[in-house]
Amino acid sequence: MTEETYTDALRRLEAIVAELERGGMDLETTLNRFEEGSKLLERCQAELKEAEGRLENLRLPDAEAAVKRATQD
């Protein structure tokens, strides 16, 4: 999932929350929305986790060497 879709997922989630809070839906729609919202939530949480990683503090020549090696792979 790209960053745009994280934001999209969050927007959709917000819309679902608002819809559920507003009420007046039939049972089936409620369950469908809840299911969709839960999936969106999981996706968003997974995204946040995925942003974590290492801190690489490189000097310019080392950074250039690393990128060069990567392009040769």
Partner: peptide
């Protein structure tokens, strides 16, 4: 703000 956020520093 975000412990462990993936960062690459290029020191110049």
């Amino acid at each position: 703000r975000w412990p462990g956020i993936r960062t690459t520093v290029i020191g110049v």
